[in-house]
């Protein structure tokens, strides 16, 4: 009978096992989705702030010297006057965060405050979610900040100068002139990073946050009376594929929308 596999499949989709697993995976995916949204909402603005920091030209010692009408002479004095603390601190942070695995950052953020008696995240799912969110926001903000920096520095200097000679303020130049040109430039690299985020959310299971992979795996170990089931874990791929597909389409639309200028 050529139809037999289809009957078997239909039977399977109607089975209690399938429904139980699907419910569990759905609830796990909801956590995944939440983590994704919180990370984006936090990291998109925080990344911009960090990018400003890493481009900061604030030189406290040079500024002080100029206030007293001094010009630095000698190598040491010049180096001190050229010192940009904000830039140094932010670039150090970006190096630390980008230079270590996100998994490690999640583990450290979750366990170390308690080990050092600083504070605890509390117990339960909410505490895990908060700790993981902080790690994700910080991590992604650092990656985003470098993308922003590239986008801002990629806008020709002439644009800023045109704004200046027209008497615009610094913030007017940023919001009215630079920003949209920067957004247009960063959409492709941002898309890359956001698609990676979709899948990186699975790292949260390292501190047992019950996201979709954790749920899928639980049916191998034992959950709701089922154990030794392998297919739920594989089935989680469907969620990621659909989700990243939707994200790709949305970002593609944004890219199209920005095509009205060059």
């Amino acid at each position: 009978m050529p139809w037999t596999p289809f009957y078997q499949m239909a039977e399977f989709f109607a089975s209690d096992q399938f429904r139980t697993v699907l419910n569990a995976l759905n609830s796990g995916f909801l956590v995944t989705l939440e983590l994704f949204c919180v990370t984006l909402l936090g990291a998109l603005p925080l990344g911009l702030i960090i990018s400003f920091g890493s481009m900061s030209r604030f030189r406290p010692f040079g500024w002080l010297a100029s206030q007293f009408g001094l010009t630095p002479k000698g190598r040491v004095a010049k180096a001190i006057c050229a010192f940009r603390p904000i830039r140094l601190v932010t670039r150090l942070l970006v190096w630390l965060v980008r230079g270590t695995p996100l998994v490690l950052q999640i583990i450290i953020l979750f366990y170390v405050p308690g080990m050092l008696d600083l504070f605890t995240w509390g117990g339960g799912e909410t505490a895990r979610f908060t700790a993981v969110s902080v790690a994700f926001v910080l991590n992604y903000a650092c990656y985003f900040s470098e993308i922003y920096r590239g986008g801002i520095q990629g806008v020709p200097v002439g644009q800023q100068e045109a704004g200046q000679v027209l008497g615009m303020t610094k913030s007017q130049i940023f919001f009215r002139v630079t920003l949209l040109q920067m957004v247009k430039r960063i959409v492709p690299p941002m898309s890359n990073e956001i698609i990676t985020l979709v899948k990186d959310t699975s790292l949260a299971r390292v501190i047992a946050l019950q996201e979709v992979i954790w749920m899928g795996e639980s049916f191998m170990k034992g959950n709701s009376g089922y154990s030794g089931l392998v297919w739920p874990l594989f089935f989680t791929a469907v969620y990621y594929l659909v989700f990243s597909g939707v994200v790709t389409i949305l970002l593609g639309k944004l890219e199209k929308k920005l095509e009205f200028f060059r």
């Binding site: 020709p156 002439g158 644009q159 002139v177 040109q181």
Partner: peptide, 11 residues
């Protein structure tokens, strides 16, 4: 100021 490279705002 009129620049050599125009510097119009593209958007």
């Amino acid at each position: 100021m009129v620049f050599q490279s125009f510097n119009l705002f593209p958007q």
